[in-house]
Design a protein around this nucleic acid. Sequence first.
DNA 1: TGTTATGTACACCGCCCTGTGTGGTTACCG
DNA 2: CGGTAACCACACAGGGCGGTGTACATAACA
Lengths: 203, 203
Amino acid sequence: MTELEKGPTGRRRGRGARERILGASQRLFREQGINRTGMDQLCAAAEVSKRTAYQHFAGKDELVTEYLRRFDPAVLSDIFDRTDLTPRQRLLAVFDVPPTTPLCPYIATAVELHDPQHPASQYARDYKKAVAARLTDAAREAGATDPEQLGEQLALLIDGAAARTRVLNADAFPTAAAIATALIDNALPATADHDRQAEEVPS
Amino acid sequence: MTELEKGPTGRRRGRGARERILGASQRLFREQGINRTGMDQLCAAAEVSKRTAYQHFAGKDELVTEYLRRFDPAVLSDIFDRTDLTPRQRLLAVFDVPPTTPLCPYIATAVELHDPQHPASQYARDYKKAVAARLTDAAREAGATDPEQLGEQLALLIDGAAARTRVLNADAFPTAAAIATALIDNALPATADHDRQAEEVPS
DNA sequence: TGTTATGTACACCGCCCTGTGTGGTTACCG
DNA sequence: CGGTAACCACACAGGGCGGTGTACATAACA
């Protein structure tokens, strides 16, 4: 269809440049990092002229910020909105990340930009707080004695697994899951048996 | 000064430009990040001519690698070599980091360089493994049922606290310490009481 | 004292970066 | 069919980057 209509240089013509730019950002920023990905390369990968890119985004900073906002649906919501899991299972499902994930882009972006006041860094903070809040909700739902503490602890485990996976080049999420199990079992003394039975027969 | 380095002929070398360069690296790389610190600025801060810097280090990559090697004595050894602490106290002392620490430079470097094969990234991996090994040793000394698991878990907590502190701009080490306490109490069922008493009267 | 390693001063190179100017082309929509 | 918004091609500015060339100064040692 329209994909086959190409210009002199083989680039796709037509509309939807913004989505192509953001798509290329997802791939390149994760694979190569933000600082090592130039706008030239990015525009080439998106099959978009440089001029068009700067008509959609005021600058690279704005593009980076917008790039970070496109993870939420896939990561946060998909796990927490599953109703087929018990609250306890939901708390643990966060650690069942497939090894395809290179690194939490929020941490990577915050480190690469190195400026806590950068809009993208602020968004990363907000996102991390939102995840902790979600975990706290699930912990409360599961009947934890101190839901806020457990939520914050599990959030730290996620970040620890992400950072350690990056540095060691080896999956650290199983270790985090083991810690999470111990913490949850400690925090849910009364309903632990019931929940563990529920895991055997999810529905 | 007392810092004497031998040349090919065994003679003393000069006035410590190398040390000044590495000192400036410690400050600037941590404060601004590696990618955002140019060699010009670095040499100016070290009060060293650019030419001299490139006579001591083949390139920025080599300087970065050497910069990473200068943390070991201050962080790793100082804590683990304290004999006035019980093994259990040593396992927890790692989380008593003063809030002056901006971020674990090993994680930051690995993320910034973004190349797992870079010598500095490899050294970061080695260092993280060494820390985990030290923790495992202490865990074994403390009589943990599975020292390797506990060591790896505590190492993950350290990295989690570091990463989270960076992203949230708030100290996450207390949370990590709380988790560590729970894990240690779980892993040291028999000797827990003895160790806790030993804390009251360290020597 | 003279020699040599060490360090200085500073201009300079080539590269890549973000970002723009200009003018032409294409797709959609009334 | 005509208008307009979106897009393209390409060159280029301006600056920072890592790294070098050249010529000179100094400190330590023989």
